[in-house]
Design a binder for these strands. Structure first.
Lengths: 176, 176
DNA sequence: ATATATATGTCAACATGACTGACATAAATT
DNA sequence: AATTTATGTCAGTCATGTTGACATATATAT
């Protein structure tokens, strides 16, 4: 029924836009990235739905869990969204007891963010299927594939953002 | 100002959630995938804004351009969205003259979708910065990196979806 | 001390792109 | 003739992003 059969539908003879063979392989990678990311996010989405949360909550709890003491400004810079957007999901996560705030010790204007025990459990639960998916994918490849994939993904990030991401991830994926 | 400095904020001594060293590298890949995809989609987003279009339009025009004669059902299966969601963006693309419909020759219920000259031009314009980004990323890696990355991304897709994607992309990324 | 800048929060209005549910039409299939 | 399928559409809702304006507390500079 919902079977993809349009490869046989090519009886129109009009395949002009597909004839550019030079960039063909790159278009493949564009599409693979789309499908990989589509499925990569589907696992956590299903878990989040049980909590009444969305993908935005996932991103917040993930980065707060991974970086205890993160400030709101840090989070805004990572997620590239407005504080109004962040405000809503952050409020829900705090009210739900997944994140708690601590007034900054040096700068009392700051609210340092920490995941609670429940928050850490949720973060772990969300990352688990994603880790498993990555582990399964890498299992089919050579041992050095992880390094290659890591470097590729890092190189895909805007050059201006790469230093920040390198510090955030805690490693230098582009260096051996 | 908006400088990320929370790596120095770790004066709380509480890094419990970061102490799981076993899955550490996989968490890195989770984050790199997030950042890579975030920036990967930012280039087309800027172009789409000029047309009053969004990311949904990009996906539709891309797959229609790449697969002339695609049916609505095919598109729904690729994008994994509802027909109501697709309906709006498809309508706008048709009204804007980027896509035109042809009644199916065998099954007159079907509307085969084709990109117009303008649609092909838009698709090319959108994929150009993405191709360039990928090309630049691969340029820093070994020649066999493309094969590795391609296989990795393919393996990240739900196994049940892999055959469809393999046919759609027109290659077998998992095979040499 | 006062002025200014910064970090954060909040209110209001809005846009996009998803969703569900219901129903309509035309054409194919049984 | 009845049913299924492919598609379209109306109506309402939700999640998550946006801009603009403004408030508060605190830090910093003059």
């Amino acid at each position: 029924m919902t079977d993809i059969n349009f490869l046989n539908n090519d009886d129109s003879g009009d395949a002009a836009s597909q004839s550019d063979r030079s960039g063909e392989a790159l278009v493949d990678l564009i599409e693979l990235l789309f499908f990989a990311y589509r499925d990569f996010t589907s696992d956590p989405d299903a878990i989040l739905a049980k909590y009444g949360f969305g993908r935005a909550h996932h991103r917040v709890i993930h980065f707060v869990d991974r970086n205890p003491g993160l400030t709101v400004a840090d989070l805004l810079d990572i997620l590239k969204i407005t504080k109004q957007s962040l405000g809503r999901v952050l409020k829900q996560l705090i009210e739900g007891g997944f994140i708690h705030q601590v007034t900054g010790p040096h700068d009392r204007r700051q609210r340092l963010l920490y995941a609670t025990a429940e928050g850490r459990a949720l973060a772990a639960r969300l990352s688990e299927p994603q880790s498993r998916r990555i582990r399964a994918a890498l299992a089919r490849l050579d041992p050095e594939a992880r390094q290659t994939v890591s470097r590729f993904l890092f190189a895909m990030i805007d050059p201006a953002e790469q230093p920040k991401v390198a510090r955030l991830v805690g490693k230098e994926p582009a260096v051996e």
